[in-house]
Design a protein around this nucleic acid. Sequence first.
DNA 1: CATGAATGAGTCTTCATTCAT
DNA 2: GATGAATGAAGACTCATTCAT
Lengths: 215, 215, 215, 215
Amino acid sequence: MCAAAATLRPRKSPVQARSAATIEALHVAAIQVLTREGLSHCTTTRIAARAGTSVGSLYQYYPNRDALLAAVLKKHLDGIAGAVERACSEHRGKPVSLMVSALVTAFLTEKLRDRAKSNALYAVGQELGGAALAARFRKRIDVAVASMLASASDARFDHPATTALIVLGAMVGPVQILLEGRAPAEFGAGLPDELTLLLTAYLQRHRDGRSRGGL
Amino acid sequence: MCAAAATLRPRKSPVQARSAATIEALHVAAIQVLTREGLSHCTTTRIAARAGTSVGSLYQYYPNRDALLAAVLKKHLDGIAGAVERACSEHRGKPVSLMVSALVTAFLTEKLRDRAKSNALYAVGQELGGAALAARFRKRIDVAVASMLASASDARFDHPATTALIVLGAMVGPVQILLEGRAPAEFGAGLPDELTLLLTAYLQRHRDGRSRGGL
Amino acid sequence: MCAAAATLRPRKSPVQARSAATIEALHVAAIQVLTREGLSHCTTTRIAARAGTSVGSLYQYYPNRDALLAAVLKKHLDGIAGAVERACSEHRGKPVSLMVSALVTAFLTEKLRDRAKSNALYAVGQELGGAALAARFRKRIDVAVASMLASASDARFDHPATTALIVLGAMVGPVQILLEGRAPAEFGAGLPDELTLLLTAYLQRHRDGRSRGGL
Amino acid sequence: MCAAAATLRPRKSPVQARSAATIEALHVAAIQVLTREGLSHCTTTRIAARAGTSVGSLYQYYPNRDALLAAVLKKHLDGIAGAVERACSEHRGKPVSLMVSALVTAFLTEKLRDRAKSNALYAVGQELGGAALAARFRKRIDVAVASMLASASDARFDHPATTALIVLGAMVGPVQILLEGRAPAEFGAGLPDELTLLLTAYLQRHRDGRSRGGL
DNA sequence: CATGAATGAGTCTTCATTCAT
DNA sequence: GATGAATGAAGACTCATTCAT
């Protein structure tokens, strides 16, 4: 995975304006091909074709197909992580319920902004050094959420990092189901509220201690 | 995906003992190759070799590579769905807290029985008619959980199906994080309890109505 | 070069008769393409085409193009080394002049048996782990010649191995010139005699000691 | 090969100082890339980069990659041929033994001046119209040596051209072995003397006639 | 029935060469 | 003139699938 890290890195940065356009086109094309044809049919030729360039150009900027896909994935994850980080830093010191609704909103908004894209890239994460990449971004989000939680005005958490990871997972799972697309319509409609409810209940219960537990 | 459905079906049923053994060997081999080499290197030749047969024999039982992989995936999902269904039917009429802990235990046990396998098959699900297959099994689990929830002795749910789907998602997400392997050790250790807490809190809050809401 | 050794080795040995035929056809085709088109145009596709098979078959037996070429080269060098070894072992204990003419005859006969082939393979030796391969065969010949020289009935050599290497070089060089094809006809005609003369003079002078030297 | 001749010729002569510098840089770069990366990785881009220019500039001076390589090879062969010609013209009328030692010295000195370069360019010679080029230079050397031999004060040669070609071959072969690098150290050390001995013996025997032959 | 050799379409990737800036 | 981005033909290699033995 470390060896891969080197080989997954872009080749050169665009110095001319033309280059930037080409790269952008490649990114867009990669996502399109990915969504329409699936990862296994997402070939360099097809990407280049849809981008309106040639394979050669693709390889001018990325040492191999996976490097391109990794770049696209990275940009996507960057967007999500950034959105979450922003939401988290804006809600430090607030009560838990506000934190949760802000977090859910930010996450869902970003994740569902382009459902097809999110979905397609999910598969990309699997192959590739995807695990490593995903872990890195999860870490970023985890840190942001944990630090926000630790600042809650109305709660105290023993293991903010672990709790944050559960929170994250509990958001990702249902969203995944939604993205996969076969869920009934009301599921999508109710998702924001349900997630908010789910997480609020969890965090508040955490705050109140498990001892009080049994309902 | 509908077209694929036909072609993904196994070719003939094992009428002889020998056939059954060969098929079993192929399944085991497929999982091994999948875990050790990754989906993209999981070739028919390699599978057959590790199973101790020839490609020819593989094609005797499956019309193509994907059919084999689909069968393996199906069996895996069957195991999980079965375990959940069993747990659900055994806890009908019980209070919510018991349901949750039974559900979490069954799901985690089955899913983590062979982490490598779960992980490898995840990728398989993506390609293939994975979405369809996953949806079908999710449906099974959803129905089982919803029906269990509807029978709870101490709660009433307006939309058991939707609630069940959230419950399912909230379990899958964190497990996914665990399977991806980069989570800290204490995350894995605490997972059963945290999931139980998460879901219990959610379901009880649901029962109590949201109106009472704000903490 | 050691790393290359593994990767240059053939992939599997033919167990069916069909295989042997395919391999033989590939060898012949490789030489033909090599002679007619040159090393840089000697592609796997072209070789397979001329062999009347498919690229796939080529890769069934050789892990890459160079492995095939290396095998062909090896067979060729084997022929030469074998011929020289035979000649050498048959002339142990003889006087130097007989040794030389036998050596020259054996070498020239074998080397010129198929001039085009010899020529084409020469280029192959350059690229590839050719240096290693060539060195190995040169060693074989060197040993054979040195041991023959050491047994001469009418001479004594201080450093048979070095002397043998000079002898070898002195034969190879002129033959090379001949093979490259632009030498006048009389050069080819006179070559056997001239080489014999060259080497005999050298070895006898060696025998007589250099001290006597200056003419 | 004749068609190639035209296209292998440099594009324009360096009329400005800047041009000369660029060309020189390209030559040096070509040799460096050649020695470090091998012929097959010796690309125009890499050459230009190492020369500190752009591909575009390369094509300003040479119509294609091979023309550049040919120019480099030509310069190299020119150096050798020139050295030999000089040595030959300086030793006209001398006795054979002096001629030989001068010839061997000049040849070895020039050829071993930069072994890596000699070696790398050897491969270049193969591809390209290498045979033609090599033949042309061999001719030059052959003429020079033959004419020197013909002027020997103490010998008469029936076919100076053929004899010279043998002499040339007998020098090239052992040097080749040395360049390929796997020969024992003492081989390299003894080479000048051995070559001198070899050729002197040959030429003197020639002079004395073969009739006297059998030792 | 089992075997594994053969097939060849389809991938990724490189690189000489051109040409707009 | 110089630059380096773009091009795309061409090569190496893989692998699902078929079929003669």
